[in-house]
């Protein structure tokens, strides 16, 4: 082994020790959450820093799943699933539609409305949420999904912007060729643009899923009946220290709610990294 190779090896070992240790430090809380959820209930705060349960126990999961007030987590997961899937489909589809309009069709007022849309990216939700609440409450739409879903028919500015970047990369000749063959704008959108921006739509769908799954403020305001709680809302009530001290069960339900998030992360990591790096999208 030459001196150069040896130096290379030493530097590599130092690098991995340093970065690896820091990496472990960063994900330790998450590992701790998952391992605590598998510890026997009494053990969670006894040997706190340990990641290895004395015996594997799933009692926390069965205890936690029972929920509270006679409502189990099956209900909460079903609610979250319905809300999230509808929200994702609506958001992604309409974002694509609007993005096509902005990037491929010349119409009066286009620049103005585009500027309006970009501005909404930075609008604090607090400015609109109070009147929205009053409006939906007067429509007697509290404890329904309308207030959570209806505002999404406009798509989401982040995704519209991302799709526009993507559509710009599609040669205009494709549109023109289709037009000559007698295809209208609607046809072009469905037959040419939509199939070609599928990768971007996957990215948007993942982010949309994350943001909806973890959405808290809107469900908190609009859904007051525990029967309608999403998983996030349920976790908050479930983990209320004055009502529940079964930390094993609380950890189990918290950990479980992160499982879908991690599964998607593991399988679609490439799309996420791409989405963030190309648009500066905050995940």
């Amino acid at each position: 082994m030459t001196i150069k190779q040896r130096r290379e090896l030493v530097s590599s070992i130092i690098y991995h020790l340093f970065v690896g240790f820091f990496c472990l430090l960063m994900i330790y809380p998450l590992l701790w959450l998952f391992s605590s959820s598998l510890k026997p209930s009494a053990e969670v705060f006894r040997d706190t820093t340990s990641l290895i349960p004395s015996r594997l126990s799933f009692e926390n999961y069965t205890n936690g799943w029972a929920g509270f007030g006679g409502i189990t987590f099956s209900t909460f997961y079903l609610n979250s699933f319905i809300y999230t899937s509808l929200a994702v489909v609506i958001t992604v589809f309409f974002s694509a539609m609007v993005a096509y309009g902005f990037s491929r069709i010349q119409f009066t007022g286009r620049k103005f409305w585009f500027a309006c849309m970009i501005t909404t990216l930075m609008l604090p939700v607090q400015v609109v949420i109070i009147p929205q609440y009053i409006m939906f409450s007067n429509l007697k739409w509290l404890n329904t999904l309308y207030p959570l879903l209806l505002p999404r028919i406009g798509g989401q500015a982040f995704f519209i912007f991302m799709f526009m970047q993507f559509i710009r990369g599609i040669p205009k000749e494709l549109d023109e060729a289709a037009e000559i063959d007698g295809c209208g704008k609607i046809g072009i959108f469905f037959r040419i643009i939509l199939p070609l921006i599928v990768p971007a739509m996957v990215t948007a769908a993942i982010f949309s899923f994350y943001w909806t799954w973890e959405d808290f403020l809107s469900p908190l305001i609009y859904l007051n009946s525990p029967k309608l709680y999403t998983v996030s809302l349920a976790l908050r009530s479930f983990a209320d220290p004055s009502a529940n001290t079964d930390w094993g069960a609380i950890f189990a339900m918290s950990a479980l709610s992160l499982v879908p998030v991690f599964i998607i992360f593991i399988f679609f990591q490439r799309y996420l990294v791409q989405g963030i790096s190309t648009t500066g999208l905050k995940g």
């Binding site: 539609m97 096509y100 309009g101 069709i105 119409f107 999404r152 406009g154 798509g155 959108f189």
Partner: peptide, 16 residues
């Protein structure tokens, strides 16, 4: 194009 433009951004415009 005006019609089509507003048709496509219509959902956003309405929500906005």
């Amino acid at each position: 194009n005006n019609w089509m433009g507003y048709f496509f951004i219509g959902p956003w415009l309405l929500a906005f």
